[in-house]
Simulated scan of single mutants.
Amino acid sequence: MTPFLKLKNLALGALLLGGIGMMASCSTNDNNGSNGNARLQIALTDDPGDYREVWIDVKDIRINVTDADDQNWTTLPGVHPGMYNLLDLVNDKDTVLADAEIPSGRLSQLRLVLGDNNYIITNKGEKLMLTTPSAQQSGLKLNINQPVIGGIINKLTLDFDVAKSIVKAGNSGKYILKPVIRAVLEAVGGNIKGIVLPDTVQTAVLAIRGTDTIASTYTAAGGYLIRGIDAGTYSMHYLPVDTTFKPFVKDGVTVTLGRITTVDTVRLQKK
């Protein structure tokens, strides 16, 4: 077996294991990055606190692209409601609360809506419920006031400060949840897009660095888009499903943080 065929088989295996479903579902507009939308991920992380466990009950996330506090709030699609132990998310760990397409532009505000089932487990093993001030029952409002960029992944990390967020109410034995959260919005990696002709031939597209397949996708109507990969230089491998066409390799494709790299059109040749 030739070295290229070995690489091809390894790459195709990585593509299948990596989950091609999310890639094959891309529309032509999405592949070209021209639909005016931005991808927004909401992640939750935590600074350590002096408890064994801290559980919060996430119900909803709402966003506002205007400055009006009392209107224009919309529920963010793709929210993952549920119970989250904040102390599982320390030391640079995080979990994705939402992954959604929103109109590109400016994200003004966000509301994190919590339910009533918030509690802590103390170092002695006691379970103590956390009460939430009535002013926060409509959701904790965070001012973001930053642009979300179309065509790339915008990751908003909610850094929950446990030590400052849990307050003991005098000698009553009650604990109050007053979330102190720092919101950090950043572009995640860069994107690679391009076109493969003939556009009737579905083609696997792999971004390879060294011997590792970093990301992969399939073409749809000839177009492809690989999102949110680390900045650096990649070798692009094009593996047509129709084996009467030759594979193609393009080296030296550079990805820049927060930008879309457009690769020259690839024209597949018959064997």
Results as ranks from 00 to 15, higher is better:
residue 269 Q to N: 09
residue 238 Y to H: 06
residue 234 Y to V: 11
residue 100 A to V: 06
residue 90 V to G: 04
residue 236 M to V: 01
residue 252 G to F: 04
residue 64 N to L: 04
residue 247 P to N: 10
residue 179 P to E: 01
residue 4 F to N: 09
residue 64 N to C: 05
residue 55 W to L: 09
residue 13 G to N: 15
residue 124 K to E: 14
residue 144 I to Y: 05
residue 145 N to G: 03
residue 220 A to G: 04
residue 243 T to M: 13
residue 158 L to Y: 08
residue 120 I to N: 00
residue 175 Y to K: 10
residue 1 M to G: 10
residue 10 L to Y: 11
residue 179 P to V: 01
residue 245 F to E: 11
residue 58 V to M: 03
residue 113 V to R: 02
residue 56 I to G: 01
residue 248 F to T: 11
residue 38 A to Q: 01
residue 217 T to W: 05
residue 132 T to L: 10
residue 101 E to C: 00
residue 142 L to V: 07
residue 162 V to C: 06
residue 35 N to T: 06
residue 32 N to F: 11
residue 227 R to F: 04
residue 6 K to A: 13
residue 241 V to G: 06
residue 116 D to T: 15
residue 269 Q to I: 11
residue 270 K to W: 05
residue 90 V to E: 09
residue 12 L to M: 14
residue 67 D to Y: 03
residue 16 L to H: 12
residue 158 L to P: 08
residue 266 V to M: 08
residue 26 C to R: 11
residue 121 I to S: 01
residue 84 Y to W: 05
residue 242 D to K: 14
residue 154 N to T: 09
residue 132 T to F: 00
residue 21 G to V: 13
residue 98 A to S: 09
residue 98 A to T: 10
residue 87 L to H: 09
residue 226 I to M: 13
residue 130 L to D: 07
residue 45 T to F: 00
residue 221 A to L: 12
residue 147 P to K: 11
residue 39 R to H: 12
residue 11 A to K: 01
residue 108 S to T: 12
residue 73 W to Y: 09
residue 53 E to I: 00
residue 26 C to A: 12
residue 25 S to P: 00
residue 141 K to S: 12
residue 270 K to L: 15
residue 56 I to Y: 05
residue 193 K to P: 00
residue 47 D to C: 00
residue 150 G to E: 11
residue 136 Q to F: 15
residue 245 F to P: 11
residue 96 V to F: 04
residue 37 N to H: 00
residue 142 L to E: 05
residue 99 D to I: 06
residue 138 S to N: 14
residue 208 I to A: 08
residue 45 T to C: 13
residue 36 G to M: 02
residue 172 S to A: 06
residue 125 G to N: 05
residue 127 K to S: 01
residue 33 G to Y: 01
residue 257 L to V: 05
residue 70 D to P: 00
residue 210 G to E: 10
residue 180 V to N: 10
residue 107 L to Y: 03
residue 115 G to H: 07
residue 82 G to Q: 06
residue 18 G to V: 08
residue 230 D to T: 10
residue 162 V to H: 05
residue 4 F to D: 11
residue 165 S to F: 02
residue 163 A to L: 13
residue 41 Q to P: 00
residue 34 S to T: 14
residue 251 D to F: 10
residue 99 D to R: 02
residue 20 I to Q: 14
residue 33 G to W: 01
residue 57 D to P: 03
residue 155 K to G: 03
residue 118 N to W: 06
residue 259 R to V: 09
residue 33 G to I: 03
residue 231 A to H: 01
residue 78 G to R: 01
residue 12 L to T: 12
residue 118 N to A: 04
residue 239 L to D: 12
residue 194 G to D: 04
residue 269 Q to K: 14
residue 134 S to N: 14
residue 132 T to I: 11
residue 35 N to Y: 04
residue 168 K to M: 06
residue 97 L to A: 03
residue 133 P to Q: 12
residue 232 G to D: 05
residue 95 T to R: 01
residue 25 S to Q: 13
residue 136 Q to S: 12
residue 206 L to G: 08
residue 259 R to G: 09
residue 83 M to Y: 08
residue 73 W to H: 10
residue 270 K to P: 02
residue 20 I to K: 08
residue 136 Q to T: 07
residue 96 V to P: 00
residue 60 D to I: 05
residue 137 Q to H: 15
residue 185 L to S: 05
residue 258 G to L: 08
residue 179 P to G: 03
residue 199 D to K: 14
residue 175 Y to W: 14
